[in-house]
Amino acid sequence: MMRYLFIIILISLSILFSSRVVADIAVIVNPSTGITELTKRQVIDIYMGRTITVSNRIILRPYDKSTNSAIRASFYHQLIGRSVASVNAYWARLLFTGRASPPRTTDDNIAMLKTIENTPNSIGYVYFENLNDNVNVVLRIEINE
């Protein structure tokens, strides 16, 4: 009996662990940028429209997932602790005052990956399981559910 219980716990843990890894988010950039690493601070500043460059040199154009997607909610929650509604309200202030345009949106993870692959100076995010070798991973955002 104890042995079965032990095996069940082990399997549960491994499922929990593997799902946690799969759910982590990779912040990705187009390889032409030459960027291989970004800090969380730099990603926040780009996605909150505070700057359009990295190190005041390389211009980055951010891409978002669609408003109702789970990955977008996780991305902003882990990055700055805000809900999608709160981030939308923040961006409404910048957009409707003509100061900056919010990140463009892509429909799904595959479309996001394709966009970042094909668009110079682009930055986006996908689940690690959707990654390929045509983009540079510059930051890992761990999802602590």
Partner: peptide
């Protein structure tokens, strides 16, 4: 600049 945008505040 956004006082008309109720969603923003």
């Amino acid at each position: 600049e956004y006082r008309n945008v109720g969603f923003a505040y």
